[in-house]
């Protein structure tokens, strides 16, 4: 399993313990989960696919940026791929910082950048048996850049 892209269910508590930081006074955890509907259409499950090696590079860059831009102390991002059931974690972001303001800001930055830059796609599977890839954000070529 990669540090950034995982086929197995995300282990939030392991991610927290791996990043534990005694000099931090705040830790913010953000998780994305599979919701049971989208735009009024009942969702049964979600399939995630990634260009794994580029996604790893991009997620690592976003972690570094989140720390540097907001003076956070640690940031780790993990994204799941494969077929996920309702309620499962699709992405987990852990940010440790001296104080809550930096931790919240860095966490928000990280998830916004993941959605904008990570080469990952989701395909919704609906209760009626149909499925479709969601419309997304075009990559521009600056995705890999850190700082």
């Amino acid at each position: 399993m990669s540090q950034w892209i995982c086929e197995a269910p995300l282990d939030l508590f392991r991610l927290l313990s791996e990043t534990e930081d005694a000099a931090s006074g705040a830790v913010v955890v953000f998780c994305g989960t599979v919701r049971n509907e989208n735009e009024g259409r009942p969702v049964e499950s979600m399939a995630y696919e990634a260009h794994v090696s580029l996604a790893e590079k991009v997620l690592r860059a976003i972690e570094q940026e989140a720390v540097a831009k907001f003076h956070a102390r640690r940031c780790r991002i993990q994204h799941r791929i494969g077929h996920l059931q309702l309620g499962e974690l699709s992405v987990a972001i852990v940010v440790w910082a001296g104080h809550r303001a930096e931790a919240y800001e860095a966490s928000r930055y990280a998830i916004d950048e993941v959605k904008r830059r990570a080469p990952i796609w989701k395909e919704e599977h609906y209760l009626d048996g149909q499925s479709r890839f969601l419309d997304g954000i075009p990559l521009t070529g600056s995705e890999e850049a850190a700082l």
């Binding site: 994305g32 995630y48 990634a50 260009h51 090696s53 580029l54 996604a55 590079k57 994204h79 699709s90 992405v91 998830i111 993941v114 959605k115 904008r116 830059r117 990570a118 080469p119 990952i120 796609w121 989701k122 890839f133 969601l134 419309d135 997304g136 954000i137 075009p138 990559l139 070529g141 995705e143 890999e144």
Partner: peptide, 25 residues
């Protein structure tokens, strides 16, 4: 693992990934 522009010259044996708009998270 690098996003390239239309003028990029591919070498024999290269793999080019086509990445549509992304929707992770």
């Amino acid at each position: 693992d690098t996003i390239v522009g239309p003028g990029y010259i591919l070498a024999d044996g290269d793999e080019a990934g086509l990445l549509p708009p992304v929707s992770g998270g």
